[in-house]
């Protein structure tokens, strides 16, 4: 159980900058007005970030697109854990069949 000092320095530097990205949003939000266009922007932020994260993954190939569509339809009916389990199974089966 050893820790190399250079490796630890790298881990600390990564951690410090990562924590900075995490508090920066709080510091900015505290200084923003709570109404008008800024309010509209903050309200739109959650779906905008979620879609920006998933869109390139879903568009990376036909299997991902098909599995994504299945998940989208299932999520309207099923609880989250069931939706995720079926989505994972669909992705695995399609890859087994076509890759």
């Amino acid at each position: 159980m050893t820790i190399d000092p250079v490796n630890f320095a790298a881990i600390l530097a990564m951690g410090a900058l990562t924590y900075f990205t995490r508090i920066l949003g709080f510091l900015i939000a505290d200084r923003l007005p709570k109404s008008g266009p800024v309010r509209v922007a903050l309200d739109a932020l959650p779906p905008a970030v979620l879609v920006a994260v998933i869109a390139p993954i879903v568009m990376s190939g036909p299997i991902e697109a098909a599995a994504g569509l299945v998940v989208l339809l299932l999520a309207l009916r099923l609880p989250l854990i069931a939706t995720v389990a079926v989505g994972v199974a669909v992705a695995a089966l399609l890859r087994l069949a076509f890759l």
């Binding site: 250079v6 790298a10 530097a13 990564m14 949003g25 709080f26």
Partner: peptide, 26 residues
């Protein structure tokens, strides 16, 4: 370890947290 490169990469990859924090803050 390439300390500066790793730190800069972590900052850029995690910059999305800033948007998330701004939304969650209130």
């Amino acid at each position: 370890a390439p300390v500066a490169a790793l730190a800069l990469m972590a900052f850029l990859v995690n910059l999305r947290h800033t948007l998330m924090g701004a939304s969650l803050s209130g």
